[in-house]
């Protein structure tokens, strides 16, 4: 697939598919979400005009000479914790594909992703950093390095066959991880059976292991 993605390309993706992506994408996680979506700082370029794909990642990269950046290795971070930022990101910046790690809840897909015609993908491995790093064709630019630090800055990068990426939440609301977790839950309760109950139960230590996202 090539970014920016058409509506047709997005609609063709199904949970469990494995895809490779080329074209421009931008990084955004804690720092960019706070700076751009909460504090309302406008990005220094028209993001929506350039691409509709973002990755929740802070790359392994450095400024190798003044103004020249290089990425050696790349991996997304666990994405469920960014659910609260998704409405603004998708509605205001026209993002159609969020590449994270291990997806978000089906509720977020239903309430935020589906109405915006967007999908959620997951990096794989987790730790195919060298493979993903090699697929970075070039760093187009790095924005807000002073404000956010080099790791949380907004990196604009051009990819060449970036993958394998797992389609996690598709446009029909189907989630690969939710399906996988249902299967795992079937066997999990059995492992607790027969273990004697704790002598002392304390607040915060009792969990229901079948709950997937708290």
């Amino acid at each position: 697939m090539t970014a920016p993605l058409s509506d047709g390309a997005i609609a063709s993706l199904h949970a469990g598919d494995i895809v490779y992506l080329s074209g421009p994408i931008f990084t955004a996680r804690d720092g960019v979400y706070r700076h751009m979506l909460v504090e309302g700082n406008e990005p220094p370029l028209d993001l929506a005009a350039l691409t509709n794909v973002t990755i929740q990642s802070s790359p392994a990269g450095a400024e190798v000479s003044p103004g020249e950046y290089r990425i050696s290795s790349l991996q997304a971070t666990a994405g469920f914790r960014y659910a609260r930022y998704m409405p603004a990101l998708l509605e205001r910046f026209g993002v159609k594909m969020v590449i994270g790690k291990a997806g978000m809840s089906e509720e977020v897909y239903r309430d935020v992703f589906m109405p915006n015609g967007a999908v959620c993908l997951s990096t794989m491995g987790y730790g195919l950093g060298a493979i993903y790093g090699k697929s970075v064709k070039r760093v187009i630019d790095v924005h807000w390095p002073e404000e956010l630090g080099i790791s949380e800055a907004l990196w604009l990068i051009e990819m060449d066959r970036f993958g394998p990426l797992l389609v996690e939440g598709d446009i029909h609301g189907d989630s690969y991880f939710s399906r996988a977790n249902e299967e795992i839950n079937d066997g999990l309760a059995e492992l607790y059976e027969g273990l004697s109950s704790p002598v002392f139960r304390r607040l915060g230590e009792e969990e229901r292991p079948e709950i997937e996202l708290f």
Partner: peptide, 24 residues
């Protein structure tokens, strides 16, 4: 499939002197 990719990634990291994971 994923375990196979992990082994390929390990080989590529050494061949290209790249960190094996993006979170170093």
């Amino acid at each position: 499939y994923v375990l196979g990719q992990i082994l390929e990634n390990a080989d590529l990291a050494v061949a290209e002197n790249r960190p094996m994971c993006g979170d170093t």
